[in-house]
Write a protein that binds this DNA or RNA. Structure first.
Lengths: 201, 201
DNA sequence: GATTTATCTGAACAATCGTTCAAAACCAAG
DNA sequence: CTTGGTTTTGAACGATTGTTCAGATAAATC
């Protein structure tokens, strides 16, 4: 046998990426074989090499695409005063990551399986994302809207806190996603203003 | 050849665990072979099976030992009012995790490589740890020392935030570990008290 | 010194790994 | 229908995987 009825790269290509994303997220890059991906797609292992030069590139491109999408989305957030930008960032991060649990998981867990060059590229993209939040914090400190010791540390702390939602939140549970967004925004908001209720009633 | 001069299980056993811990943390469980571990120990692969029935058990015991040690340590924290217990928890978590970066990394990243039974056991230990912080929060809410919407959510948020320190902090950098502890405690402290009108309607 | 026990080697096992490639079968265009 | 390009199969490659085990040597015990 050879080419199968109905086969087309516009269909198989996305299915290869989807299967790899799902399997890498569930079992880890190193634990997933090309043959497992192929079986999920419904194809023999050799056919995968029409869609990626090798397994490493398949992983890298999944991660890069995710990070590029993340950066484009965060760049589209509205301008405004630091406090508003911070609230937008918090709600955005939770929602965006909730919509892509597999890609998020991979982007955080499979860094060590990247070749050095690929690792550097992903790390650069991640740093750009962290810099977005760090800028919000430093702008807020400059404008005296926030009281913070260190914008960099605060950015790392908040991103870790927000990304952690993916580890426990499940739709259909006790809380809705927007309730979670509200709660996290409440916590982050308190974090950046001075404690003691000086602002108001 | 056979038994080598100076060989002793009291020496080789810990070295096997240390090599596995380091390699699993650096490359991931699935990406590390028994032969790599053996090479690090300075032994042939077959000798490893004097110290573990199989690779899976080696991983599981590293994770379980880490979690048990964590739970014993957190149980040793002093009693007191919720705000003091919270501060102790924050500083403890950062210091304890900073001292064991490899074990922490494995305990968070290799869950998916555990057999179902082993996974359940590690998850139970993790839940017990999270419950410690959750209790501090609910006690603080009851005592009206904290203003928090949801002790469970707050516990997950704070643990994620604190554990994140391991991803960026390096001793010898811009900040000392105790400066980081101070900064995180500042943020967590603000999070649990009223900021004055910050609560969303 | 003799005997027992502890520890390791080195070879072997079947299974699986990522990857390549010629041949085959399908699709699209003329 | 014919031609040319696209897509997949299926077999094959050498390398590596986790694990087992008989035999050999060192250490401990008597």
């Amino acid at each position: 046998m050879a080419r199968t009825a109905g086969s087309h790269s516009d269909v198989t290509g996305p299915r290869v990426r989807a299967a790899a994303l799902s399997l890498f997220a569930r079992h880890g890059y190193a634990a997933v074989s090309m043959r497992q991906i192929a079986r999920d797609v419904g194809v023999q292992a050799g056919a995968l090499y029409n869609y990626t030069p090798d397994k490493q590139t398949l992983l890298f491109e999944l991660m890069r695409d995710h990070m590029v999408e993340l950066l484009e989305a965060v760049d589209g957030l509205p301008a405004g005063p630091p406090m508003e930008r911070l609230e937008h960032f918090v709600r955005f991060h939770i929602a965006f990551h909730h919509d892509r649990p597999d890609a998020v998981f991979i982007a955080y867990m499979e860094l060590r399986n990247l070749d050095p060059d690929n690792f550097s590229e992903i790390e650069a993209l991640r740093s750009r994302y962290e810099a977005v939040l760090e800028s919000i914090f430093s702008d807020g400190v400059t404008a005296q809207a926030f009281e913070l010791r260190d914008a960099k540390v605060a950015a790392m702390a908040v991103i870790a806190m927000l990304t952690g939602v993916n580890t426990w939140f499940r739709a259909g549970g006790r809380l809705s996603l927007s309730a979670v967004q509200d709660h996290y925004w409440d916590m982050v908001h308190k974090m950046v203003v001075s404690a003691g209720g000086s602002i108001q009633p």
